[in-house]
Computed example of a mutant assay.
Amino acid sequence: MTETSAEGQATTTASNAQPNVEVDTSYENDSSYGDELSSYTASLTSSVLDFRHENGRRYHKYRDGSYLLPNDESENDRMDMLHEIYLMVMHRRLYLAPIKKPQRVIDLATGTGIWAIDFADQHPQAQVIGCDLSPTQPTMVPPNVKFLVDDIESEWAYENDPFDYIHARSLSVSIRDFEKLMNQCYRSVKPGGWVEFQDWNGYPISEDGSLDGTALQRYYQEVYGAFETAGYEVAPGPKLEQWFKDAGFVNIHVEKFVIPYGVWPKDKHLKKVGAWFQAQAEANGFEALAMAALTRYKQWTKEEVIALSSQARADSRSRNIHTLFNFYVVYGQRPEN
């Protein structure tokens, strides 16, 4: 297995090793990095345009309740910020699989569609499909992109028209049965084709114990406990390799990237990533993740969710709490035969 070093480079390590991230003790003012990404405001022309409004946020209505995060403009802006974070972490790469001139590609749970659009620009010979429960993608897109409203946990119909490459990113807290989804990917990719999942271990860690007992730690315990009650997988990243093996993929490759929370790292690359990650959380990220899960499955009130989110947000700003997340990129190939 490989992981990134403190400088962001991939290095070979044991699968259970933790990154050693040095804390910046100079306390320099590095709280602002970059500008927010431009949000996509146009919606996909579709017959599925009804939405659920709840606790001041907007949610998808097609297959109502299948996905517990909002799909309003505030959330779309935050998702586009996360896209930039993934690019920074992966050194501007959209994918790691060794694909060559793919002709047919699908992006599962495409969200705002930004990955599919970027991929289509890089590969004009490919026909790219982005599918999602919410029709919130832009209409002004490259000619080789189309978006579909679909539930990827339902039965697929792609086996007779398989893909050269299947991509899925950040499906944590979105999928109940990853093993079924992985088997569907195997059946729907061409022999010799590649499947790539990029996903989180949702639970944060701290190498020095500074996260222990904090409101930030309690936030993730409470929120992810609600998602687990609802049947969702909250930490798919470290399990992806085994799911790829069980589905029958070969030539499996695993990389683990470390993403800090805030500007406390000494390493300038990680400091920049951490600043962006904190910025997306500040953009209503705490409430977005927690609101539906806690109010629908743990009977919290809106005010209680806001209070917990406020406490977690305060902890996230502290340079004395050194929070890290692990992000995994795993790809595998369907055998030629």
Rank of each mutant, 00 (worst) to 15 (best):
L96K: 05
V89P: 11
K146M: 05
V105Q: 06
D177W: 01
W243Y: 05
K239I: 06
A157F: 15
A283T: 11
A281D: 06
M140L: 08
D107N: 01
Q280E: 15
V23I: 14
F277V: 00
Q278C: 01
T214Q: 09
A226K: 01
S154L: 15
A290M: 04
D107F: 10
Y297H: 15
L289F: 14
R169P: 12
S38N: 12
V329Q: 05
S66Y: 10
Q122Y: 10
P335L: 04
D246V: 00
Y232W: 01
T11R: 09
D150S: 09
T295N: 04
D208Q: 07
F227E: 04
F277N: 14
A17V: 06
T139D: 12
T214I: 02
M291W: 05
S38C: 12
A293T: 07
P260W: 10
Y203W: 01
S46C: 11
V145C: 13
A235P: 07
E241L: 13
K190E: 08
W243F: 06
S39H: 02
I117K: 03
D121Y: 13
W276S: 03
V250D: 05
P238Q: 04
H322Q: 07
S32N: 02
E303I: 07
L69K: 09
Y165T: 00
E22L: 15
T301V: 06
V263C: 14
W264C: 05
N320P: 05
S172D: 03
E287Y: 08
K239V: 04
L270I: 08
D164Y: 14
K272M: 07
R319F: 12
F178D: 06
F257A: 00
L270M: 15
H253M: 08
H269M: 11
D132F: 15
A97W: 02
P162Q: 03
A292R: 14
G274H: 08
A293L: 00
L37Q: 05
A292E: 06
P191Y: 12
H53P: 00
E73I: 07
Y95E: 02
T25L: 10
N20W: 06
L37F: 10
R313E: 09
D30Y: 14
Q137C: 02
R52M: 12
Q9E: 08
M291Y: 00
H60F: 15
W276C: 03
Y261P: 00
P191E: 04
E36N: 13
G213F: 05
R104F: 08
M182K: 03
R334V: 05
I129T: 13
Y224H: 02
S134T: 09
V273H: 11
L94D: 01
K298E: 08
G225H: 14
Q9N: 12
P204G: 06
L37M: 11
E54T: 10
G193A: 06
H322E: 11
E241F: 12
I259K: 10
Y261L: 14
